[in-house]
C-alpha cells in the first residue's frame, strides 16, 4: 500500500496489445507509443536540473498531505496555486471554471467512534503511476513525464475530454473560454484540458510546488518517493497513509495521512 515503487505494468501492456491488435486489423504495422529517454542516474536531490538535462526517471515526485493539519476555512494552497498558475474563475456558470486544486470537506458517515468526524483536505491531480487519463487519450497528449508528473501536452490536445471521463478524482478541467492572463511559464488555453502540473516549472528550478510552500500548517510534504532517505518516503514508511481510490490500484503519487 505504501510502497512507492511503480507496480507491474500488466494492465497498460494488455490494453496496448489489444490496441495494436485493432490497429493491425486495418493496417500492417504498429509500434508502441513514445517512450521517454531513460537516463540511468543516481538519486536526484531537489536541486535545479542542469540545462539540457531531461527529467530523471529514477525520481518519482510525490506529495504527502496530512489531513489532520489541514485547517478548516483555510484556502491558502488554493490561492497560491491559482496565482502561480494564473487560474482565473470568472465564468457565469461556476461549474465551467477550472480548478486545479480544491478543498474537500469530508464528514464520516461510517458507523463507529469516528462517526460525524469532519476532515479537510486539498484534492488535485494525484499523479498516478498508472494514470487512466494517459491510457485513454487518443493523441497521447495526456502524458507522464519520466519523473512521474502527469501533464497535458496542449500542443496535441484536441479537447475531446475523454480523460475527464476517465479520471476518478475529477482532477481535470476543460478550459471553456478564451484566456489572456496566463503566467508566461504556465501556458493554458481555450479548448484544451488541464490539471495540476505539480508546478513542474518550479520543480525544474529546484523549488517546491506553490501549494506546499504556501501551507501555513506545514500539512504538505513534497519530495522523491523513490528516495528512501527523503522526508516524504521516510514519513510514508513510518505512518499509515492512504491512497484515494486505492481499490483502482492506480498508485497515485499524492498520499494522505490522517484519513
Amino acid at each position: 500500500m505504501t510502497s512507492p515503487q511503480t507496480p507491474d505494468n500488466a494492465r497498460r501492456k494488455f490494453i496496448a496489445a489489444a490496441g495494436a491488435g485493432v490497429a493491425g486489423l486495418g493496417f500492417t504495422a504498429i509500434a508502441p507509443g513514445l517512450h521517454l529517454m531513460a537516463v540511468g542516474e543516481a538519486n536526484a536531490a531537489p536541486t535545479p536540473r542542469k540545462a539540457g538535462e531531461p527529467a530523471n526517471p529514477a525520481v518519482r515526485w510525490g506529495l504527502l498531505i496530512d489531513a489532520n493539519k489541514c485547517a478548516p476555512g483555510c484556502t491558502k494552497c488554493i490561492d497560491a496555486c491559482h496565482t502561480e498558475n494564473g487560474v482565473s474563475a470568472n465564468l457565469p456558470d461556476p461549474r465551467q471554471n477550472s480548478q486545479w486544486i480544491r478543498k474537500i470537506e469530508l464528514v464520516d458517515r461510517r458507523p463507529g467512534k469516528t462517526r460525524g468526524h469532519v476532515t479537510q483536505l486539498p484534492m488535485m491531480c494525484q499523479h498516478c503511476a498508472e494514470p487512466p487519463c494517459v491510457d485513454v487519450c487518443p493523441t497521447g497528449a495526456s502524458m507522464k513525464r519520466a519523473d512521474g508528473i502527469v501533464l497535458v501536452d496542449r500542443h496535441t490536445c484536441i479537447g475531446c475530454r475523454y480523460c475527464m471521463m476517465a479520471c476518478p478524482y475529477k482532477a481535470r478541467s476543460f478550459v471553456h473560454a478564451p484566456l489572456n492572463d496566463q503566467n508566461p511559464e504556465v501556458p493554458r488555453g481555450k479548448g484544451c484540458v488541464e490539471s495540476c502540473t505539480l508546478c513542474v516549472h518550479r520543480i525544474d528550478k529546484g523549488q517546491q510546488p506553490a501549494c506546499v510552500e504556501s501551507c501555513p500548517e506545514g500539512a504538505m510534504t513534497f519530495g522523491d518517493l523513490n528516495d528512501a532517505d527523503s522526508a516524504i518516503a521516510k514519513r510514508i514508511a513510518s505512518v499509515p497513509t492512504t491512497q484515494v481510490r486505492a481499490d483502482l490500484r492506480l498508485n497515485p503519487g499524492v498520499r494522505y495521512e490522517g484519513l
Binding site: A16, A23, I30, G33, D135, C137, P138, T139, A141, T156
Partner: peptide
C-alpha cells in the same frame, strides 16, 4: 492531430482507425 498522433491504449484512438 488525431490522425498523426496515435495512442494504442486509447479506445478513442482505436476508433480513429
Amino acid at each position: 492531430v488525431a490522425m498523426t498522433h496515435f495512442n494504442p491504449t486509447s479506445v478513442f484512438g482505436w476508433n480513429v482507425i
